[in-house]
Write a protein that binds this DNA or RNA. Structure first.
Length: 436
RNA sequence: GGCCCCGUCGUCUAGCGGUUAGGACUCUGGGUUUUCAUCCCAGCAAUCACCGGUUCGAAUCCGGUCGGGGUCACCA
């Protein structure tokens, strides 16, 4: 049997569409699973839409996700060039041959393929038999008057020359398939196997659109999603793990992949589950790696050492890397406390007692802080929750923080005492020291 | 509108003639806990779009209806 070869053919738009990633994933998995080749072809035949740097954006996006290709414009390969714009003469020649053979004709400077006037059908690897009536395949342009091929044409020519065995693409191409089948026939080549996976939908169940939906891959990276989570999430749309697993790696996806398990119905790209999955992956990250990743999501000037110390405190509290900074703000910004900041009636006492025991600690470590504070709670009959909430408020100014004792260790004794003393001042007017 | 594809909890899905229709996310309640979160339990939620067949028996097979989507370019 001939070698399995698949391809993706994105156009250089300047951003990577999540739908492109989705298709890349199926193609990549199918190639790897079947010991085949995965080709990256850059569909750049629309000169009007040429965008500078678009290629690099594409490569960077796929690399970030861990999707590797075997042949492509950047890597070369035995079937190059991998950019149709560099094969202009070839398409011209092939189109003219079709005219010579009377299968095509010239009109207004363009070349059009003659309608074969017959039905076209194929056995779709995901959807089964599909047939289009002859009336749906009319004459159509294959070579534009500017000499560039139209998508259908270069796509088919390239698939033939690159010996593509399976065309795995989105269902929006189903209606294009009969025209391409006509082209394969005109060119005297056997068509590849087709497989049309469902297209991703938005909340309105419409195809994701660039205008109103967040489709740019970079948006997800900037929001603090991990590539592993995004890949895993995409794999769960339209495909399901044979053992029902929800959390698995790209390698495992490859290992378990089969077109038979691809659903036909279009899934809604609802990121609620992505948020959850991302949290799962964040919690699995080791501290050093997470600290390094976090670095680029924090505007505040900071160090890897600091981040590494703080990572264990926030790891279970965020679902996206971008959520970290707001939890950490109080580390580098002193709170402005006033009387109204505190809720407990015993707040003044809480702070006074905390100051007393904390000042006494000779070695500033978690054990010491824990034991002296719980002793203070017990001896004064404080309510544990109230007491710690007062400390939390005094030290951070906010009600939601990482564990406060651990945070105090990282802040350092001097800073903690300073903040508590500042907080204490807000009580002086109201509770003057007793006389005698 | 023509043609084509699709239709199981709000969302992602399992299911491939006989199941109390299962799981995940979300949400709700409870437990652990110094807040939040994690973690652990429990719960809500699909008359399998609808109507007819076929069959002893249908979410599963067939037909129709309705609904949704895609496509009909010298865009890809």
């Amino acid at each position: 049997m001939a070698k399995i070869r698949v391809r993706i053919a994105p156009s250089p738009t300047g951003y990577v569409h999540v739908g492109n990633v989705y298709g890349a994933l199926f193609n990549y998995a199918f190639a790897r699973k079947n010991d085949g080749d995965f080709v990256l072809r850059l569909d750049d035949t629309d000169q009007k839409r040429h965008i500078e740097g678009a290629e690099e954006v594409l490569y960077a996006g796929l690399e970030w996700l861990g999707i590797e290709w075997d042949e492509g414009p950047d890597k070369g390969g035995p079937f190059g060039p991998y950019k149709p714009s560099e094969k202009k003469e070839k398409y011209n020649k092939i189109a003219k041959d079709l005219v010579v053979k009377d299968l095509a004709y010239v009109e207004d400077g363009a070349i059009k393929l003659k309608s074969p006037g017959k039905d076209f059908s194929w056995n779709d690897a995901i959807r089964g038999d599909i047939t289009f009536p002859a009336s749906e395949v009319k004459d159509f342009v294959i070579l534009k008057s500017d000499g560039f091929p139209v998508y259908h044409f270069n796509s088919v020519v390239d698939d033939i020359e690159m010996q593509i065995s399976h065309v795995i693409r989105g269902e929006e191409h189903i209606s294009n398939t009969p025209r391409q089948l006509a082209l394969f026939e005109a060119l005297g080549a056997a068509p590849p196997m087709f497989a049309h996976f469902p297209t991703l939908r938005n909340a309105d169940h419409k195809k994701l659109s660039k205008r109103r939906d967040p489709v740019d891959l970079r948006l997800y990276r900037e929001a603090g999603y991990l590539p592993e989570a995004l890949v895993n999430f995409l794999c769960l749309l339209g495909w399901s793990h044979p053992e029902g697993k929800e959390v698995f790696s790209l390698d495992e996806f490859v290992e378990k992949f089969s077109l038979e398990r691809v659903r036909k119905a279009g899934p809604v790209f609802d990121t609620k589950k992505l948020d959850w999955l991302n949290g799962v992956y964040i919690r699995q990250l080791d501290n050093n790696k997470m600290a390094k990743l976090l670095n680029s999501y924090i505007a505040q000037e900071t160090t890897i050492e600091f981040l590494e110390s703080v990572v264990p405190l926030i790891k279970e509290r965020i679902n996206k890397l971008s959520e970290a900074e707001s939890l950490l703000t109080f580390f580098w910004t002193r709170p402005v406390t006033e009387r109204g900041t505190f809720e407990s009636e015993s707040a003044g006492n809480h702070i006074a007692e905390a100051l007393i025991v904390l000042r006494r600690i000779p070695e500033w470590n978690l054990d010491e802080v824990n034991t002296s504070l719980s002793k203070a709670i017990k001896e004064n009959g404080f309510k544990t929750g109230d007491f710690y909430m007062t400390l939390r408020l005094a030290i951070s100014g906010v009600k939601i923080t990482p564990p406060i004792n651990e945070s105090m260790i990282i802040l350092g004794k001097d800073e903690v005492l300073f903040r508590l003393e500042e907080a204490q001042k807000t009580f002086v007017d109201i509770e003057p020291p007793e006389i005698g």
